[in-house]
Design a protein around this nucleic acid. Sequence first.
DNA 1: TTGTATGCGTTATCAA
DNA 2: TTGATAACGCATACAA
Lengths: 352, 352
Amino acid sequence: MTIKDLSAQTGYSVGTISRVLNHQPNVSDKAREIILKAAAECGFQLNTNAKQLKQQHSTSILVVVKGISNELFASLVESVQARIAGMGYPLIVDYIDENDNEVSRAVQLCREKKPLGVLFLGGNREHFLQDFDKITVPCVLVTNDAAGLPFENLSSVSSDNVLAARMAIDHLVSLGHRKIVVIGGERQVSDTTKLRYQGCLEAFRQHGIAFDEELDYETARFSLAEGFRAARALLERGREFTALFAMSDVMAIGAIRALRDAGKRVPQDVAVIGLDGLAIGEYTVPRLATVRQEVEALAESSLRLLQRNIKNTPAPCHETIPVSLDPRESAATPRCGRTKPLPPDANQGSKS
Amino acid sequence: MTIKDLSAQTGYSVGTISRVLNHQPNVSDKAREIILKAAAECGFQLNTNAKQLKQQHSTSILVVVKGISNELFASLVESVQARIAGMGYPLIVDYIDENDNEVSRAVQLCREKKPLGVLFLGGNREHFLQDFDKITVPCVLVTNDAAGLPFENLSSVSSDNVLAARMAIDHLVSLGHRKIVVIGGERQVSDTTKLRYQGCLEAFRQHGIAFDEELDYETARFSLAEGFRAARALLERGREFTALFAMSDVMAIGAIRALRDAGKRVPQDVAVIGLDGLAIGEYTVPRLATVRQEVEALAESSLRLLQRNIKNTPAPCHETIPVSLDPRESAATPRCGRTKPLPPDANQGSKS
DNA sequence: TTGTATGCGTTATCAA
DNA sequence: TTGATAACGCATACAA
């Protein structure tokens, strides 16, 4: 079924058919009505290949997501999808491996799909420096800060990562902890890790807390298994600590498991705080203290920026979204002077 | 950059260029070499729109995934992606809402993308009955059983859902439990729930265990929040029980949280078992007992079937993948005769 | 307001 | 083994 068939059916020419189907104004009401009815009857749809071949660009927005099992990104995609529905752009969501180059992938997809703009969920400055000059449509990097990158068509929206880490450490300190260890990503490689690590160091300095950059830090990928491994490594290192900050919630959950396996109670022996604010943290035992990234705000800002840059072409803009502390059980007020094991429900924190 | 430009650059005609780029045999080695080099130099890529407009079909495989935040499906997609990489087909992954109609979406996408075949991750018999006749390429429904559906081009690969539920109940019974409640989906609507529920009833009957189909069952969607709510509803109902089977791991995790909030110890007061075998279950406190679905086997079989049906057109085939019990802490041997609270590490089960 | 005709980049048919 | 050329389905400039 093509517009030619529709033309034969209605008696109108393909030109008129095309105009009606593209909501152009210069068509008579009568023609519009007849053609729309005929199209609806046979469930007609324009051929996207032909359309885009002709137009040389699509009307869609591309979303490149780094990591298929990243729950934070999954929430972001959901939110973006819900918001875009009202704006009319079709969405092309492309999931790539956490370790793949998101920019070269985007370059390839831009050639193929010719989108109006692209949203990067996660990304690496290095990759942008290497390949981003090949892409010309407006882009927004979400979750990482692209300030300082020399591209006129790249904006960014990210949580305040430095502050987030500071808040996590501040919270632990306010609970009386002075011996704190940290689990996070590669400090030399991951942009996000760099910022969060900086926040940690600032907080430690401000509170006059000693922190050995080698012995009190363990590098891990952002996964349950790696959080588990990292916490065990810290324990085996023999370093004494009463609190642990993991740079992501999944790492924190893995770490809590390792601590429990080692006979440590959370939060009585070791307080644990994560970062992200994933839904699962509300349901773990103990409930996971965390610094929450505002998914809805991230999605809203990203789309607003992208839309603005698609319509006009203003200077790139780099927004920072506030974060908020969720002080839950895994880093709650420690019971004072307790030396004996607690009853089994102690993990439920201050409720008793 | 088009094949015309390449033609001008190399002196060969567009026909020869096209033949080389499509790995056709009837080209001289010299032409092949020259053209391939020129194409590589400028990073040339064929225009997919033009190609598909001409060919009337693509060479890709479509994957329709129901639910963007479904961890089981995320694992399946990862596995499928890894396997497909070696087979050469491009993958189109389309995520739709859990409640949307996957078949009508597939119909639309088939018109647009003309894939060689489609993989459904999750699906509903009703939807297939309604719309599937409009799709003509080979399809495999993964995770649900399509046996009995009157379609020549629809195969299916699913876990043995009846057995899985039986195994879960059997395990609880083997631990000495007789008062068991169940959380699952809509028994009238969800195909998967029907089978798992049937497995439960069979197990109860076999063991001579009483089960009130209204009072001992709570309907919930497959989420943390709903598992939590359902468990609380069961508690508030005043029904006594010593064990709980949740038809998914996320529900089970939500349920455990609700039980803890109500002062119940898991597994000492209430044993809990889930179904799926998600990674998170290895890290919860207590570790989650579960009946594991074999993601790798599901992915392997689905792709094998699909590929077979693309190459030949044999009769549809409906495979069942075995499941396996992971008897972890949340449903471990209960301590006998205990009445006092246990030490805090009791949740770690039989290790002490 | 409508119709006609051209070309988007590719594949495939045919002739050379 | 190669080149010329006609489609594929659509949007659009131009003519009517």
